[in-house]
Amino acid sequence: METKCVLSIKSPLGPPVEILKHVFPANSNRPRVSFVAGLHGDELEGLYICHKLLRYLKNLEANQPEAIQGEINIYPAVNPQALENSTRLWPFFSIDVNRTFGSRQTDSLAVETSQALLEDLKSSSDTVIDFHSSNLQLLELPQIRIIKDFEKKLLPLAKKCNVDLIWIHPNAEIFASTLGFNLNSAKIPTLVIETGICLRIHPEKGDQIFNGVLNLLNELGTLKLTPEPVKEPHLVQPDQVKMVQAHHSGLFIKQVEAGNFLEEGERIGKLIDPIEGSILKEVVSPCSGLLFTIREHPLAHKGSPLARIAELGVQ
């Protein structure tokens, strides 16, 4: 394994801010795969998966180097300052780095950084996996979200990744500034794997995705090994995703867990008024299906998402 510095920036107090990548060189000309974690500094689940991958690949390199057929690049912490501060945004400027890709403006360090990362990934990858967790509010089952325009290329890859769910959804303007969109637009297939919630690590879900990633590497021919069997994900189209929103502002007390299969009308939780002591609303499932998103942060304003359910009955 060789460690390279993608970008180094001198800091005012001395030690530089560096984006590192670990490169496992190939024994043949098989597809190069890159893994990215930590674009949002409070999303740690991807860092855990990269840690597992690094350990596995180091061991493989030492004991079975011929198994590495294509170059593997791991970028374990691409937003170092946000990670140090445990914040989603680039702390100095409150900038979401994953809203700066593809920008032609170069008037901030965050944009300089995202451009350097994007160019490095483009030059060293045939496929990219970008790990994310959810925000402070919601917990997600392991899933891959695919923009409809990229479905043909990405769906066969996504099915190999041992996720619970693949959600095909229409394009939205905001995606144009993300790493995934820009790489896919540059014809480098990129899967955005989302799991868990920010500021937490769920090792069992990380292990599940780790197995999926090994399976994908094997299917691509990047690794030559015998992977463990993976699960068949639920494929969900936009009209199968039912979002439950808060109709009142209050505290949400959840009564189910992500991964539960719910019946139509089954209770998801309740919204309570913390000041007056009343129950504002019993929240129930609008359909039968897989609960793949659940609100963890109790504070809910009117319109806040409380849950997402994949309606599987019509599949």
Partner: peptide, 26 residues
Amino acid sequence: TRLWPLDGMDMDLAFPGNPEGETAEA
């Protein structure tokens, strides 16, 4: 603060918004 700490969203990335959506969207 520049952004609302609860959602950390840049308000000027929320348009056209949604009357039924979250606070910034509404």
